[in-house]
Simulated scan of single mutants.
Amino acid sequence: MRLSTVILPVYRWPEARQLWQRAEDLGFHTAYTYDHLSWRSFRDRTWFGAVPTLTAAATATSRIRLGTMVTSPNFRHPVTLAKELVTLDDVSEGRITAGIGAGGSGFDATALGQEAWTPRQRADRFGEFLPLLDELLSQDVTTRRGTYYSAEEARNIPGCVQRPRLPLYVAATGPRGLRLAAEHGQGWISYGDPKGAGSMPPALCPDVIAAQLGRLEQACAERDRDPAELAKVLLSGSTQEKPLASVDAFVDYAGRYAELGITEIVLHWPVPDSVFEADLSVFEKIATDGPAQLR
């Protein structure tokens, strides 16, 4: 199992640089960051942009993979996003993974002055957004007409360093999103029950992931796709589970999900005085000792 982390974009760069470099030194497989304009309890706190942050992180590191967790149509367009991702892939010399999702109903959904989309409207847009992004990242010139997103001779030259394009990890739990993951994704992302991850008893949380994995396998079967081709990523931190309590707690947590088929666990880098507060020394010990105990 791979172990990765999320470094929230809440630090000025002199401090953030040290965190991204420390994540590489600790051996994390990937360091992601949230692609939001702000986020929940951090709305009135420092919050920087994901793409500039990842660009800076790419120049400050050399081995660790980097990525978004996750990007959505809430304030992105596939044409401009593809150009930024191709650039990121070039700057990082092929170390970028793009986590992509349909978006939610938080601040990002209305920051551009629009009305918040319903779940169905988000799914409709994502159904155009992801295939167009895939096409834009895979070829030099793209023209496509859609109801919500279009491209007119959009160029992406020289294309991605990673071939045929950088990997797309699709955050999805519903049937339409899982079909998109099966069709376009190199990975799938879940954080648990989207309707109540924070209130569910910890003992029931693995059952939710098991059911989602079953639906993902079904979506893959419908497209004659081997589900083993997809990375299965679990973003921790939204449930009542406590994997950062100790190394043993993490090993128990990760072991349960490894048995279900999860291939990558993502832990939030501790942020003091926030919902992601945790003991940094325990977190670092998990990073160095936890994966070895899972083998």
Results as ranks from 00 to 15, higher is better:
12 R>Q: 15
22 R>H: 12
22 R>S: 09
29 H>R: 14
30 T>A: 04
39 W>P: 01
45 R>M: 07
48 F>Y: 14
49 G>N: 09
55 T>H: 04
57 A>Q: 01
58 A>P: 09
59 T>W: 12
59 T>P: 01
61 T>N: 03
70 V>W: 06
73 P>D: 07
75 F>W: 08
75 F>M: 07
97 T>V: 15
98 A>Q: 03
100 I>E: 00
103 G>F: 01
103 G>R: 02
104 G>Q: 03
104 G>R: 01
105 S>E: 13
107 F>L: 13
109 A>G: 11
115 E>P: 09
116 A>F: 00
116 A>P: 05
117 W>G: 01
121 Q>C: 05
122 R>F: 08
126 F>N: 01
128 E>N: 12
135 E>C: 11
142 T>I: 04
149 Y>K: 02
161 V>P: 05
168 L>M: 02
178 L>K: 00
178 L>Q: 00
182 A>D: 02
185 G>Q: 03
192 G>H: 08
202 P>R: 09
209 I>A: 00
214 G>H: 04
216 L>E: 00
224 D>A: 15
226 D>F: 11
227 P>L: 06
232 K>H: 13
243 P>A: 02
248 D>R: 13
250 F>Q: 02
252 D>K: 14
253 Y>V: 06
253 Y>I: 00
255 G>I: 11
257 Y>M: 10
257 Y>Q: 08
269 W>P: 00
275 V>C: 11
290 G>S: 00
